[in-house]
């Protein structure tokens, strides 16, 4: 897919992030590739332990210790703004480039707005700090811009809130303040890691609406990391489905929801209850549970839970992650591109 790679704002290829621990190496990311296009929303969906949050942290080089990038590239395309293409994967986390990028071109919104703010500094203080760090503004200008941003994200009484502490704000307002801080330097990419998971459903709808509005105004790309397929369906242009540190399928949002190719995506979509469902039929569920990180199955890691498991193929080698002919979907599954020595097996859908 060289065509999208060229136009991509960020192109990640074969990214591996490992956490060496006393008991062994946790392969949080085990060769992930994805492209984020300018101005688009990429949904990254998966269950706990799939590595979706690790991607966001790897892009900003803020991995928790002892995690580190061991392989792969993350090409940041700065040509549009007159810069050069930068491989984030080989940058020094404390170097000038990364510090300029964090909170500048790339900003992040975290799940827990309570713990993401400092409890001993006012909201305004923290917002101004980010602005002063990245922009050539005086403290008074930074204050003014902070209050304008707070108005933009719908925080009532912004001049007063500017002097309040994070604990004085409700969950929804705190997340708005977090978003205001993230967009303060007009990022090209906003990484939102479970931005609404801790919020109630009506507040969630408000925050998603806000993100959509800001994206339209600021023309920024959003990488939306979540386990909630409903949120993905409402927000994303393209989707990456992850399982155990790998992307197993990706494509335009409509294709992923209506023509999923990987048995895991299919199972995941079937197993979610929907408010649109009729009656009380039993939910089809995926058998088993997510394996322990030290106990990864060989071959395709979804194999032991897969209804289409093919002995001799799926447990023998790892399927390649490649584009399906005639589609815009990428999938890693032997149902769709069998290994050479195995004959084609028709898919069961």
């Amino acid at each position: 897919m060289t065509d999208t790679r060229d136009s991509a704002l960020l192109s990640i290829n074969g990214l591996k992030v490992h956490y060496p621990t006393d008991e062994g190496v946790v392969k949080a990311l085990d060769g992930v590739s994805l492209d984020i296009l300018p101005g688009q929303t990429l949904g990254v969906v998966g269950e706990s332990g799939c590595g979706k949050s690790t991607i966001g942290r790897a892009i900003l080089q803020i991995l928790d210790k002892p995690g580190r990038v061991v392989d792969g590239e993350m090409m940041w395309n700065a040509r549009e703004s007159g810069g050069q293409t930068l491989d984030i994967a080989i940058q020094n986390p404390d170097g000038h480039e990364m510090r300029a990028m964090r909170g500048g071109d790339v900003a992040m919104v975290f799940q827990e707005p309570m713990t993401s703010f400092s409890p001993i500094h006012t909201i305004g203080n923290q917002m101004s700090e980010a602005i002063l760090l990245h922009q050539d503004k005086t403290p008074a200008e930074a204050r003014e811009w902070s209050i304008e941003l707070m108005n933009m994200v719908g925080i009532p009484n912004a001049p007063q809130r500017f002097h309040e502490y994070s604990y004085q704000l409700s969950g929804g307002l705190r997340q708005r303040a977090m978003i205001a801080m993230a967009i303060s330097c007009s990022p090209k990419l906003l990484i939102a890691d479970e931005p609404t998971t801790a919020l109630d459903v009506t507040t969630q709808a408000q925050i998603l609406d806000l993100l959509r509005k800001l994206q339209e105004e600021q023309k920024m790309a959003i990488m939306l990391i979540t386990h909630n397929l409903g949120v993905i369906a409402e927000m994303a242009d393209a989707v990456v489905v992850m399982y155990l540190g790998k992307a197993v399928e990706s494509g335009p949002v409509d294709d992923i929801f209506h023509r999923p190719k990987h048995p895991y995506s299919q199972g995941l979509l079937r197993s979610i209850p929907s408010v649109q469902a009729v009656g009380h039929e039993k939910l089809p569920s995926i058998a088993g549970s997510i394996p322990h990180p030290f106990n990864r199955p060989s071959g395709c890691t979804f194999g032991p839970r897969c209804p289409s498991f093919m002995p001799g193929a799926c447990d023998a080698s790892v399927p390649r992650y490649m584009t399906l002919d005639g589609t815009r979907q990428k999938v890693s599954c032997f149902l769709h591109h069998p290994p050479e020595e195995v004959e084609e097996v028709p898919s069961d859908d």
């Binding site: 929804g172 307002l173 459903v201 009506t202 709808a205 409903g230 993905i232 369906a233 408010v275």
Partner: peptide, 24 residues
């Protein structure tokens, strides 16, 4: 509440939905 629930189907996006203002 019903309007706020995200529906897992991109074809069911409701851009005109009524959003609740304010907080509990």
């Amino acid at each position: 509440l019903l309007a706020a629930v995200p529906v897992p189907d991109p074809r069911a996006r409701r851009d005109d939905r009524k959003l609740l203002q304010g907080e509990v």
